[in-house]
Write a protein that binds this DNA or RNA. Structure first.
Lengths: 266, 266
DNA sequence: CGCCCACTTGAACACCCTCAAAGGCTGTGG
DNA sequence: CCACAGCCTTTGAGGGTGTTCAAGTGGGCG
């Protein structure tokens, strides 16, 4: 987990290698490779970086040590107990975060898409408490946290953005708590699908048809259900013509009914 | 929700009024009253404020606009939709945070004790998403967030502490997600009680015997259970001599068994 | 004292889990 | 290219946990 790639020096620039990453990023890189990058040319700039940075501030932000890193599907970005040094911005692909129970059971606590931040919880104790696993071939920006803090201290608008992203993580967790605490299985799934749909839409993808990157078991863990229950719910929703499922490909048909289910008391 | 109390000018100091606040703080104040305070004399300093501040930094921190405020039991500190302006540090007493569902149901998402921060999620959207309600007569420090950010930008150790407190909120939420996602009702209650016990111990209170400040209904909402189920679980644990309950007064007897329950798969 | 609210306890039922079996998809190696 | 293994997914049946509805008790406060 150390950044010893020959490419990881701040001055170096990515030398693209023709390996396709999903989600249509124009540039690509070898897996395991890590390259210095600049945010000013990043497609996700409007998600990560605050609007209206002055040229000088933007330059200062680009000076934060930061490397891009490709993570293959199933690989872990960090594990519980790893020393906290970086936060990670998902650049392409998707991740799950998993918390381990003392007895070995796992709980999926997060499902992260492009533009979202990973690993923030690690600041509390100086080491990560969760594990982050790529759900597909993905890319992240690893941002050295001390450097980021230093810049945030000098550029108020950066600091504000950092805090907003912290808060966004808290709000995400809270809405997940709402799901687990008050909803029936069916409503949890409906709400989960609508949430993903909205987040994909915000990234410019189709909110109607998408590929789930988690297995039934992972979705179940995330929603506090068993994998069989998740499967049954999908079948039931399809039988009611509310959506169509084929393996992990979901197409929302009746978004209104889905919304009612997510918000209904029963 | 504006700070227009005559006492709320930065220079003024508290004029104690003999109203008792639980949890044994030496100084007290009238309810609804808001007074400027300094952290350097606060009993919770070691929880809120980082260790080893230089004198100069400590002075700068004390300059952050900040007022103490007494909140009577049942009163709300902020509501969902309120503009986000302050974060609140619990000084004495306890709070719950509640998220409202579109259909009117409520979900208790947090149970906050002295030294913990309230309202952080509001930064994300500029307004609060949850509601905070005092569970007993309590006191908070209301800290103007822009001012806090300004000081954090100048004093790295303050900034680090702020981030740590952010992260602590995330970690708290994650462990609650673990509870709701993987545990049976009984294990949830056991884990909840142990969590409270540990947090009270950290504040110097007895970890063995304490007063729950939430009703069965609120505990149930927090744990994703019905109030009847919570009541039954308490009765069952008492029948097994693992604890004793009388209304809201709980005494943990067999902490080992409680821990096993919280960590067991079944 | 009496009201109200919180809490307790019981019984029937619903939801979801557990166990089990079978079919489908994917990737690997022959 | 096919065969096979392994995992993911679906579906069924039965049982357990927690919910819902209902009634009754107890404590706190006016």
């Amino acid at each position: 987990m150390s950044f010893d790639s020959p490419c990881a020096t701040p001055a170096a620039n990515a030398r693209p290698q023709p390996i396709r990453i999903h989600h249509g990023f124009e540039d690509s890189m070898r897996f395991g490779e890590m390259c210095a990058v600049r945010c000013s040319t990043c497609a996700l700039r409007r998600v990560c970086v605050p609007e209206g940075l002055s040229d000088e501030d933007a330059r200062r932000f680009d000076d934060v040590p930061r490397v891009r890193r490709a993570v293959r599907r199933g690989e872990t970005l960090f594990r519980a107990g790893d020393r906290f040094e970086h936060i990670y911005a998902v650049r392409a692909g998707s991740f799950k975060t998993v918390v381990m129970h003392p007895d070995g059971r796992e709980q999926v606590t997060g499902y992260l898409l492009a533009g979202e931040l990973l690993g923030l919880g690690g600041i509390a104790a100086g080491h990560h408490v969760a594990e982050a696993v790529a759900l597909e071939d993905s890319q992240v920006c690893a941002i050295g946290f001390p450097g980021l803090e230093a810049v945030a201290g000098q550029v108020p608008v950066m600091q504000r953005q950092l805090h907003r992203l912290f808060a966004a993580a808290i709000v995400r967790d809270q809405s997940q708590l709402l799901r687990l605490g008050t909803m029936r299985g069916e409503a949890r799934l409906a709400s989960f699908l609508l949430d993903i749909s909205a987040r994909l839409a915000a990234l410019g993808y189709s909110p109607r048809s998408f590929l789930l990157r988690m297995t039934r078991e992972e979705i179940g863990s995330y929603l506090g259900l068993q994998l069989e229950t998740v499967s049954r719910m999908f079948s039931r929703l399809q039988a009611r013509s509310i959506l169509t499922v084929r393996q992990r490909e979901v197409t929302l048909v009746d978004t209104l009914s889905l919304g009612e289910m997510a918000n209904s008391a029963a």
